[in-house]
Write a protein that binds this DNA or RNA. Structure first.
Length: 471
DNA sequence: CACTAGGATAGTG
DNA sequence: CACTATCCTAGTG
């Protein structure tokens, strides 16, 4: 009989509908890479002007805030400078009414971008007008800060939200001062090796750990400071995410988004950042698929908004995590403590060189080189085959010998090493019995679905993505 | 022999 | 139900 298919192992691997706690060993769950942190910093605190944390938790022990430019400019300036951003000039060019430009935290100002929103400054408080997207901007970019969902059902009642600028400044300044005081002002960045914070975290860690295990005072201070800022950023972004979830009625976990959720989120984010609309079909996918997209793929789909969307998604992914743990740059994954799912021993990935490099770095893909993946093991087992193939294709330096683009713009690619690709696929899906025969069968299913098509001149091992899957 | 093509069925979420 | 994973038969170069 054919009931003897014993190759089936109990598949406990959750799919998109499941909650994250049981991710596979390779599953990357949070800001696992320094690049993620970079995103966070860029989009959140460090790179943004006075931050409208509308409902930031009241700080009981607040002191009178230093007047805006005088006391803070130094810190802000430094903060901005070493992040490579122009120092904001909080000048008031509107006569007697001081204004503050609250700009959407477009991290990469490379794309078109909405005009700054000017807000009249009142003593210590800023009324925030309604935006196109009725949600006030937050530094983290996600929709923010409503005290409750109900506010939205009665728009008339909340035309203005008040931002406690004192709070904002104090919060940020406290951190800046803290850092600055520990290291003498001008050199502290170097000492902390803070420059492009995220990207160098690895090296920082490595150097330090290799240097003196004991760690002179300096060494040990680095992590906590950065960590403090990050924690704050994460906290805020989590609040923002939660609020947005409430408004959009979507899960905080992008992996659980349906295609509709993704649409909602994309539209919301575009609107929120006043970015040009993107054809819906470009992001016609569920959350799992969205999460699997590399930054480059975001940019291909939405040249003007891709970076922002990608950065936002990074924040959402980060916010998924309940806690921000110190030393995120450590080799360990940032996944919440959970037992390794049955099936693949987690060590296995490590041992198998060829495969462990596997797809992870790829997510980073051609884009920033590091972005989403870093050294983090990529992804969930929920990934679709076509996404997986694109992941491989996105890192030719790693998998170029197994699979490569023949015609990138038309989505034509060739599998050079069918065995290896199949093995990688099997590994990712925790299907040890995977082979090219099965893999190709799955690919052929895509013909029907319009995800892939046969190439004009059929060649062995050559396939072609359909638009927009090739993006 | 390696691959292509596609039907059928089972498993999973 | 979608999306594979698996098995299988038939055909191609």
């Amino acid at each position: 009989m054919d009931t003897v298919r014993t190759t089936h192992m109990p598949q406990t691997v959750p799919r998109s509908g499941c909650s994250p706690p049981s991710a596979s060993p390779g599953e990357r769950t949070v800001p696992a890479s320094p690049a993620d942190l970079h995103h966070l910093l860029r989009v959140l605190g460090a790179a943004s002007p006075p931050e409208p944390m509308l409902h930031s938790p009241p700080n009981p022990h607040t002191k009178p805030p230093p007047p805006y430019p005088e006391d803070n400019s130094g810190f802000l300036e430094r903060l901005y400078d070493f992040e490579g951003y122009p120092t904001p000039s909080p000048s008031s060019d509107e006569g007697s009414i001081p204004t503050v430009a609250l700009q959407p935290p477009s991290p990469y100002n490379s794309f078109q971008y909405s005009p700054p929103v000017y807000v009249k400054e009142e003593p210590n408080r800023l009324p925030v007008p309604e935006f196109a997207s009725p949600y006030p901007l937050s530094p983290s970019g996600s929709c923010v800060s409503y005290s409750s969902y109900h506010q939205y059902s009665s728009p008339a009642s909340h035309h203005e939200e008040y931002i406690d600028i004192e709070e904002l400044l104090k919060k940020r300044i406290r951190y800046c001062k803290k850092v600055s005081n520990r290291r003498q002002d001008t050199t502290f960045q170097k000492r902390l090796n803070l420059r492009p914070i995220p990207f160098e975290l690895n090296s920082v860690k490595m150097e330090e750990s290799s240097g003196g295990a004991g760690g002179t005072g300096d060494d040990t201070l680095v992590a906590p400071d950065i960590d403090g800022v990050l924690s704050m950023a994460i906290e805020q972004s989590k609040r923002d995410v939660d609020n947005t979830c409430t408004v959009l009625g979507i899960s905080p976990d992008p992996l659980q988004w349906s295609a509709e959720d993704v649409q909602s989120w994309v539209m919301f984010t575009l609107q929120h950042f006043r970015l040009a609309p993107v054809p819906a079909e470009y992001f016609a996918m569920d959350g799992v698929a969205l999460v699997a997209l590399t930054e480059e793929e975001f940019n291909r789909r939405a040249p003007l908004a891709g970076s922002t969307l990608y950065a936002q998604l990074e924040i959402w992914k980060a916010a998924r995590h309940e806690t921000w743990r110190p030393a995120p740059w450590s080799e360990q994954e940032q996944t919440s403590p959970k037992p390794a799912p049955p099936g693949l021993p987690s060590a296995d990935d490590m041992s198998d060189d060829e495969d462990s490099e596997s797809v992870s770095a790829s997510a980073a893909g051609a884009g920033s080189g590091v972005s989403a993946g870093g050294k983090a093991k990529s992804g969930s087992t929920h990934i679709h085959l076509w996404q997986f193939l694109k992941e491989l294709l996105a890192s030719p330096q790693v998998h170029g010998s197994a699979i490569r683009w023949l015609d990138r713009s038309n989505g034509v690619f060739k599998i050079e090493d069918s065995v290896r690709v199949a093995r990688l696929w099997g590994k990712r899906k925790n299907r040890p019995a995977m082979n090219y025969d099965k893999l190709s069968r799955s690919i052929r299913q895509y013909y029907k679905k319009g995800i892939m098509k046969k190439t004009e001149r059929s060649q062995r091992l050559v396939y072609q993505f359909c638009h927009p899957y090739c993006l």
